[in-house]
């Protein structure tokens, strides 16, 4: 998320002294200013969100009901065409193919990320100090690497003639792989993209997992072990229940991030071969910016947002239910 509000440092020395008396509690005193302080503090963040996210969103929604191509843009025409863009997309087999592909792509990535991230998190918890710092540094580097740089490196690693991967496979005895073209098939290209995304996403899950694990008291493990539980049962009955909120929120965050991943798909093989690795955000880009059908691009974007909203609604339902239980 690109929106970050400026840290707000307010309060003149005089006021700070007054507040100290109230020891930070939201007090129902006479001052209007102190009562509205929380809202004032929230204001910059809300304004930034509205300006940078809300307004473009409203515009995108508006555009999705227009026939807006380069002609309309150049001549400054506004051509409303009702739900035509929506009916076109919802009856287009290409749109549904792309949607199905995006869902499958997201599922595969998220399962691998959550699985791999959890295992690395558990490993971090068990390692000695030196090795842990080493592993954390490695994870940090993978996470900090700019996406386009990472994608470029990956596309070179998997290059058919000069790539290290093919060279290694050849040396290991798979001589068929010496000149294998990973980008000539849908599975090959997806393999590279998925590997790239999983590699860059595991650190986030692993760090959160490790942070969560440090909050579980050692006695719980001991008690479980006394009862004769093995590694799997400890995970299932001690770790998982304690960290359920973590698993939920991380999974949903990863779903959103993977669903909307774009740069990786563009940089690795530009949606190829034959458009077989296009996902919804990429499809919206091709239709909107590439072909200059901005209305259609906006429609696909709105439909993508709707899908994510449905997913998120489910997530918030679970979160709210949990908070009720607590």
């Amino acid at each position: 998320m690109a929106v970050q509000s400026e840290p707000v440092r307010v309060q003149s020395p005089k006021r700070a002294a007054g507040d100290a008396l109230n020891s930070g509690r939201p007090f129902a005193g006479p001052s209007l200013l102190s009562r509205s302080a929380p809202y004032l503090l929230l204001l910059p963040a809300i304004l930034a969100t509205l300006a940078l996210l809300g307004w473009p969103l409203v515009k995108t929604f508006e555009l999705s009901f227009q026939n807006l191509n380069k002609r309309q843009l150049i001549l400054h025409l506004t051509e409303w065409n009702g739900f035509a863009n929506y009916t076109d997309q919802l009856t287009s087999s290409e749109f549904w193919h792309t949607t199905g592909r995006t869902i499958a792509f997201t599922a595969v990535n998220v399962v691998l990320i959550m699985g791999g991230g959890t295992l690395v998190g558990l490993l971090l918890n068990r390692l000695g100090k030196k090795m842990r710092i080493l592993l954390q540094a490695a994870l940090m580097l993978a996470w900090a690497m700019p996406i386009v740089a990472a994608a470029t490196v990956f596309s070179w690693l998997f290059d058919s003639r000069f790539g290290v991967v093919n060279w290694v496979l050849d040396q290991l005895g798979w001589h068929d792989m010496a000149d294998y073209n990973w980008y000539s098939s849908q599975t090959g290209t997806f393999f590279v993209i998925v590997l790239l995304i999983v590699w860059q996403s595991i650190p986030f899950v692993a760090f959160n997992m490790y942070a969560g694990l440090t909050t579980i008291p050692a006695e719980l493990y001991e008690a479980a072990r006394m009862d004769g539980a093995g590694a799997w049962r400890i995970f299932r009955w001690v770790v998982f229940p304690s960290l359920k909120p973590f698993f939920l929120s991380t999974t949903f965050l990863e779903i959103i991030w993977v669903f909307k991943s774009f740069a990786q798909i563009l940089a690795v093989n530009a949606g190829g071969p034959q458009g077989l690795t296009q996902t919804l955000p990429f499809y919206a880009y091709i239709q909107g910016t590439g072909n200059q059908h901005y209305g259609i691009g906006a429609t696909i974007a709105v439909l993508t947002i709707l899908m994510l909203v449905v997913l998120m609604a489910y997530y918030f339902r679970i979160i709210l239910k949990q908070e009720d239980e607590l």
Partner: peptide
């Protein structure tokens, strides 16, 4: 001619 150019994809296929 915009990416993805169908003629290019056709030739490759």
């Amino acid at each position: 001619e915009n990416t993805p150019n169908p003629i290019k994809d056709f030739l490759a296929a």
